[in-house]
C-alpha cells in the first residue's frame, strides 16, 4: 500500500524555538494512523506543520507531491481537512452556516446539500440546533460540529486533534464510530492525535509514539499496544 501522506525529516519552529527535530511519518491510503504522546510532545505541532499553519522544514508529500511551504488555504483545497485543537468554531455564525463553510471550496451545490443532511444524520443534535449561534453549543456539541464541518469538505485526508476532548464517554464512542464509518465508505486517510492512548489504539491500525519532537516508536497498533514501556507509560497498566 502506498503512502497517501508522507513526512520526511520534518522540523518545525515557533519563533526561534525548534519544536520538531526531524520527523518521519507515513499515512497509509485509507488507513487510520494514531499519533500518541504526552502533553507537549509535539503532536499538535505535527498537524499544524502538515497543513502549513506554522513554519517548517523538511518534506511533506501528498500523493507524492510536495506540499511543504504552501499556504493553509491551498493545502485545504487539496483535500486535507484539519479539525483543530479547540475546535475552531465560528461562534457568531449559526450551526448550519458553520457546516456550509466546511464545503466552501466545493462547487457541487446539490451534493453539498446532501452532505449537510448526512452530517445531520450522524449528529441529530446539530440538526435540532441548526439555526442557533454555534457559540451557544456545549463543548461536546462544538466538537461534533467541528467533525461535521471537516466532513463537509469531502476530505481525502483528515487531521484530527483530540476529537475526544470535552466529550462525554458515550459521545466519544459515537464520534469514533462515525469517523470509522466515513473512513471506510469514503476511503479517507486519517491522522489522529490523541492523549487517550487506549482509545486511539483501539481505533487506529498504525501508531507512532512521539516524545519531545521525535518519533520514538512506530508500528501496528497491536505491536505498540503490546510494548511493555508503552503500556506502563501511556496505558497505565
Amino acid at each position: 500500500m502506498s503512502a497517501h501522506l508522507a513526512v520526511r525529516g520534518l522540523r518545525a519552529y515557533y519563533g526561534q524555538t525548534r519544536a520538531l527535530h526531524g520527523l518521519d511519518l507515513d499515512l497509509a491510503e485509507g488507513g487510520i494512523t494514531a499519533l500518541l504522546g504526552a502533553n507537549g510532545a509535539g503532536k499538535t505541532t505535527v498537524l499544524r506543520a502538515i497543513c502549513g499553519m506554522i513554519r517548517s522544514e523538511g518534506e511533506i508529500l501528498l500523493d507524492g507531491k510536495a506540499i511543504g511551504g504552501i499556504a493553509v488555504e491551498d493545502v485545504v483545497r487539496l483535500g486535507v481537512a484539519h479539525v483543530p485543537e479547540g475546535r475552531g468554531t465560528f461562534v457568531r455564525l449559526t450551526v448550519e452556516e458553520n457546516l456550509g463553510l466546511g464545503a466552501m471550496i466545493r462547487r457541487d451545490r446539490a451534493e453539498v446539500a446532501r452532505d449537510i443532511e448526512r452530517v445531520y444524520a450522524h449528529f441529530p443534535l446539530l440538526k435540532e440546533r441548526r439555526r442557533q449561534q454555534a457559540g451557544t453549543l456545549s463543548g461536546g456539541e462544538q466538537q461534533m460540529l467541528a467533525v461535521g464541518r471537516a466532513l463537509m469538505l469531502r476530505p481525502r485526508v483528515m487531521l484530527l486533534d483530540e476529537p475526544s476532548f470535552g466529550l462525554a464517554p458515550r459521545m466519544v464512542a459515537e464520534v469514533f464510530e462515525i469517523l470509522k464509518a466515513v473512513n471506510r465508505s469514503d476511503r479517507v486517510s486519517v491522522l489522529l492525535v490523541e492523549q487517550n492512548a487506549t482509545l486511539a489504539l483501539a481505533f487506529a491500525d498504525r501508531a507512532y509514539l512521539i516524545e519531545t519532537g521525535r518519533i520514538v516508536m512506530s508500528g501496528s497498533t497491536a505491536e505498540i499496544g503490546a510494548d511493555e514501556n508503552v503500556r506502563r507509560a501511556y496505558l497505565g497498566y
Partner: peptide, 14 residues
Amino acid sequence: RAAAANPESARLVG
C-alpha cells in the same frame, strides 16, 4: 463573515 470572525478557522476551510 467567517474570515472576519475567525481568520484561522476560515483558512482551515480553504
